[in-house]
Design a protein around this nucleic acid. Structure first.
Lengths: 333, 333
DNA sequence: CTGAAAGCGCTTACAG
DNA sequence: CTGAAAGCGCTTACAG
């Protein structure tokens, strides 16, 4: 059997309370006593049982990370494979590794109610990070209203409450279109997740811009046909805003086939969730950089601060800025 | 305060032992009693405290996943960003989500000794999966000799013990070279992690093959110069075995610049850790498919079986096969 | 600065 | 099929 705190206390000739104080560096212990206890721990090769510690304190020192909530299986796989997930994960990990917290992966198939009852209520985790924008459901509202330790990424429409980190998606979609507009592009093809009418609301120069809209973000089976169709029109767009960076290479390949040069014949802008990814292409792609790594770090800091009572405020949106990184895929016309 | 098992027992008019039996579906409980207990749990909105459960059973129902052990920071980032990590992670998650186990991410900066004392000894995890091939250290041998619940990926040279899953790296390197040989390639450039002399030992037709060797797997800063140099020689290779799939696109771009066509002028083979990745290129790349997803699943199954006493054997290597998937980047010459 | 002791919420051999 | 009670290994108010 492994040694317990009692064995240490006996060997050191002190009480378990004192051993506990030494372990947790809490309260005042005289240097002499501390030395005795430490050498007893050493001698017995003692390491505290964290299950007992967690039980006694009702704190698991663990935060849950849920990758994607209430989405289809297809979307889930997309998330885990994405740079978005990887960067978020690295950001979270970066913070936890210096705080003594561990990351518990919350099973991907769980819905929010299961997470709440199985993990938060059962104390298996001290808090939760939700990696994607949750839907505005009754369950979610209950969680927020109960002020449970949950931080989410994104924005909750019409219910801007709770603790969340947001990179202002609408803002950067707008910024890209304006960026292209300022380079005198007036005919832009958009491939992405935002809805057509939402985009139109964002843009200032609607009368002056022709926007070709395609929402095939997670289904680019028809990419080839779509691109061919688009570029066989007599009025070709001069710029492409293609949100999904992993789809850029196929697009470039198809354009190559058609002898359409980037950027001479068509300018391209995409989105990178990891800084520098646009450099992996030929030509290097001008991208919006969404600081997902930073978002993961920020979300984790906030969560731990809230768990530990360092912040008491509960409803707050933490904004991070996305910036356009200019490379060689856009020209002024 | 949240309700405890005592509250449920009182309301149902039974003992806590009986409530526990109902919760854990263990032992015999009469249907009547079960109904009473269940409705009491429902009424009180009771959910067992998993910290107390873990403490009482000394089982955390959690397995640790360590991504990379005893490697440099640079390598660590490489791992997390790689398809290898993602696929392994998905495989592990796939199994845990159906077994009641959770995944605890073991902090990336930890070394094996810290993992052992902080997680395994402290009971924070029931077992550990090590995502990469561990070095043959004293600590590692101690762990294996103590038959601790640890499963690792890869092979431990000269010390082929413990539980591990292996995709036979040497074997597939050999297979690729022979595959190219059978297509009449006699001049092959290799870019990868294996050492030159190891490769020579693997190949049958050494006298008949010219192998240009480059070990720049994790440092392709000089990729461009290297490729230019290689293809400016008068004796160009006819085939390229480039292990790092994420580097294939830059290679193709550089070849495009040089007006060297794939596969007409040069055949290319790479390695994919996720099935189908070779299709994302133009032309589609003929790849070795290493079944990392499957490896993650297998490792997790073995670990859980060992933890739960379903297997008692400790020293076993579980082999998985890597296969070559033919696409359009290799020609017969 | 230190100790005695209750308590955290379950599980489980044991007895019936 | 069911219950009384010990026990898991810590922490922490309280007293001194």
């Amino acid at each position: 059997m492994a040694n317990t705190i009692y064995d240490v206390a006996n060997l050191a000739g002190v009480s378990t309370a004192t051993v506990s104080r030494v372990i947790n560096k809490i309260g005042n212990v005289s240097p002499k006593t501390e030395t005795k206890v430490k050498s007893a721990m050493e001698k017995l090769n003692f390491t505290p049982n964290s299950l007992a510690q967690s039980f006694a304190t009702m704190k698991s020192k663990t935060i849950g990370f849920n990758i994607s909530l209430t989405v289809s299986d297809e979307m889930r796989d997309y998330y885990i494979d994405s740079d978005y997930f990887t960067e978020l994960f690295k950001g979270i990990n970066r913070i936890t590794q210096n705080t003594g917290y561990s990351i518990l992966i919350i099973n991907i198939k769980e819905n929010l109610e299961n997470i709440r009852s199985d993990f938060i209520d059962k104390k298996k985790i001290d808090g939760l990070i939700i990696g994607n924008q949750p839907e505005d459901t009754k369950i979610f509202r209950n969680i927020i209203n109960a002020k449970l330790p949950v931080v989410y990424i994104g924005q909750l429409k019409k219910y801007n409450k709770g603790l969340h980190v947001y990179a202002q998606y609408s803002q950067y979609v707008k910024n890209v279109i304006e960026y292209l507009y300022n380079k005198n592009h007036r005919h832009i093809a958009y491939f992405g997740a935002k809805k057509e009418d939402e985009i139109k609301k964002l843009i200032k120069h609607n009368d002056d811009i022709t926007l070709e809209y395609y929402n095939l973000l997670f289904n680019n089976k028809h990419l080839r046909e779509t691109i061919l169709e688009l570029f066989n029109k007599k009025e070709r767009p001069t710029a492409l805003f293609y949100e999904e960076l992993s789809g850029i290479q196929p697009v470039i390949s198809i354009l190559n086939e058609l002898n359409i040069r980037v950027p001479e014949d068509i300018s391209i802008v995409s989105v990178e969730h990891k800084k520098g990814l646009g450099n992996n292409f030929y030509p290097p792609i001008t991208n919006v950089y969404v600081p997902v790594y930073e978002m993961g770090k920020r979300a984790t800091k906030i969560l731990i601060d809230y768990i530990e009572g360092n912040i008491t405020e509960y409803n707050h949106q933490f904004d991070l800025e996305s910036i356009i990184i200019e490379r060689n895929s856009v020209i002024q016309i």
